[in-house]
Design a protein around this nucleic acid. Structure first.
Lengths: 224, 224
DNA sequence: TCTTCGATCACCAGAATACGCATGAACCGT
DNA sequence: ACGGTTCATGCGTATTCTGGTGATCGAAGA
């Protein structure tokens, strides 16, 4: 984990940086707004500690600029005590948190932990199989980057197959997972949907294992 | 957006709840730890405001219990001033932020905005989707710079959709976040509001995903 | 190894259905 | 009474289901 500390007070900066290093982080230091902004723009930090009052460029402006540039790393602001309007402004400018001076170093460490932990929670929910990508969160699928237009059952089918890639999935298993309650077992609906899905996908990824069911597999693996 | 306020001081609870409702949120209230924990466990909130000192179960325990249960909603803790060790404990227990009492309501609102927007993965207080801009701070929306005149429900709907851009949002999810407890599930209210919102927006950004729900997306992204 | 037979599967197209939407009327709180 | 919200109805259409047909496959016997 790499952290940037932007604070013009040399003593305070060193104090924070030392504590962070002690806690196992890699730390970079900056002592004015422009230097800090430049570093945050070019280097990939897991979190930034940013004083609100800085030479060259104030803290609020630094965050705002990062945010408009699309930089999304967590920012912890240091504000003067009782300047709550500054805090509100900082938060609305895009800062994720603040601590009022004077503060306990322990508290800053706890907040940095919280920020990093929270930022890590944003994992993309995408399953990839050859040219096919499935975004479960957006309920969207693409082939070679081209979005597919799937009906809800088609999507559910594809989703189940991709969640069990490489495995043979039986017809009854599919029925049980695609439909709520008991469903007429002897009907060829699954075959029909597999057929439609195969046609829409274009590529031949759904293999039929005769007598058992279907299996979805990346072409490289299928070649073996 | 739906928020839970857990605070045993009746006056303070009401004060916070009123301010939040004023700002356009749907608010549920709890007055002790057990009640609060139960509500947070069963209802889907976008954020929780949680006092640290509570009857029946203290705030720290409430968060800890939620976190071990896998509940991940953002939690804002209210702590007594100068009890910084409590703050650290709260954050390490899984709270996302805290405000020290006494506080300015403005500040709590700003922090709630920040938490919600962060949970949705946005870094700036303005969310943009094609020609539509949502200013979470001012609770205003514009299309091509022209301010929209939206009713409170319409705004809540737009807000929730824009906070979850690109994702498919189900009708039930919308109902749960736009209304407080029990609401007639089988009614077409959501459809009606989607229809009205579409008409007011003019541009066609709200896509209906048949059988699943609705998805808001910028046209450029849909084309890729 | 080749042939034959039974079982499984893909595909088609019409029928049945579920779904989303607009509309207008009823309902509420202010 | 008014704006905002909710509910009920009916329509058009996308989606799903059904049943049939021909193709394909696998196993067993010659």
């Amino acid at each position: 984990m790499r952290i940037l500390v932007i604070e013009d007070d040399v003593n305070l900066n060193r104090q924070l940086s030392d504590a962070l290093k002690e806690a196992g982080y890699v730390v970079d230091q900056a002592f004015d707004g422009e230097e800090g902004h430049y570093l945050g723009e070019t280097e990939p930090y897991d979190a930034v500690i940013l004083d609100i009052g800085l030479p060259m460029m104030d803290g609020i402006s630094v965050v705002e600029k990062w945010r408009t540039e699309g930089k999304g790393m967590p920012v912890l602001m240091l504000t003067a005590r009782d300047r709550w309007s500054d805090k509100v402004a900082g938060i609305d400018a895009g800062a994720d948190d603040y601590v009022a001076k004077p503060f306990h170093v322990e508290e800053v460490l706890a907040r940095v932990r919280a920020l990093i932990r929270r930022a890590a929670g944003h994992s993309s929910s995408e399953i990839v199989c050859g040219p096919v990508r499935l975004d479960t969160k957006a309920s969207k699928a693409t082939v070679d980057g081209v979005p597919l237009k799937l009906t809800s059952h088609e999507f559910r089918l594809l989703s189940y197959l991709m969640h069990h890639m490489g495995q043979v999935v039986s017809r009854t298993e599919l029925v049980e997972h695609m439909y709520d309650q008991d469903f007429d077992r002897d009907s060829n609906t699954i075959e029909v949907f597999v057929g439609r899905l195969r046609k829409k996908l274009g590529v031949d990824l759904i293999e039929t294992v005769r007598g058992l069911g279907y299996r979805m597999q990346a072409p490289s693996e299928a070649a073996k």
